[in-house]
Amino acid sequence: MSDKRVAQLIVDELMEAPPSSAVSLQMSIDHYLEVLRGVLDLFASKKEADVIYVTSTISFDAIKRVLEALDINTSRVFFVDCISHMTMGASSGHMDDHTTLVESPTMLENVMLKVEYLIRLSDASEKIVVLDSINSLAIHNNNWILSEFLHILVSGLRARNVYTIILSVEEHSTPEINNMVNLVCDHGIRTNPKEE
């Protein structure tokens, strides 16, 4: 599929999911930028939503630079960064009021708490939580705790009418991880919709 179409396909699919859905978005690694464009630019701006972006893959700094390069407005994107503190220490990056750090991606409870905090601060009527990605969280956590985390996080967000998007990378995923995600999601999107 051409890259441009990927972003559009994601938006079309996301628009179909009812509010407070949990969506599994499985991408091919080559489609990462288009996924960011589709979710953060097209979808979030169409919904006029605040986005709470949980990253355990690359630092919020790096994602911000990517978004700026893609010409995507980041004024409504808030980051929960679980990786910078671990890799670079407390003084990592240029902290701002759009970013909160979690000390380590193993502190999953604190991820929930920071998400909750940012949801409380947001006055947007629509809110989207993006989890980037389940595979990088799986590097640091066992499947038991990760699965428990997903259940509690998603059911809490559902109850608050928040839209959840769980990113997974096809090349890095396992059947166990896919199962775990499918168990909490009511909608699935793949950027490479060929064979299973």
């Binding site: 193993t106 999953l108 409870e109 604190n110 929930m112 708490l113 920071k114 909750e116 905090y117 409380r120 601060l121 956590n141 066992n142 499947n143 038991w144 705790i145 990760l146 699965s147 428990e148 985390f149 509690i152």
Partner: peptide, 23 residues
């Protein structure tokens, strides 16, 4: 429960049990 002290007040999340069971 795990607790966070924030300007929005005390926030609580259940302590995940998978962690203490260990696998």
């Amino acid at each position: 429960y795990v607790l966070d002290l924030t300007p929005e007040g005390v926030l609580l999340a259940p302590l995940l049990k998978g962690g203490s069971a260990g696998t």
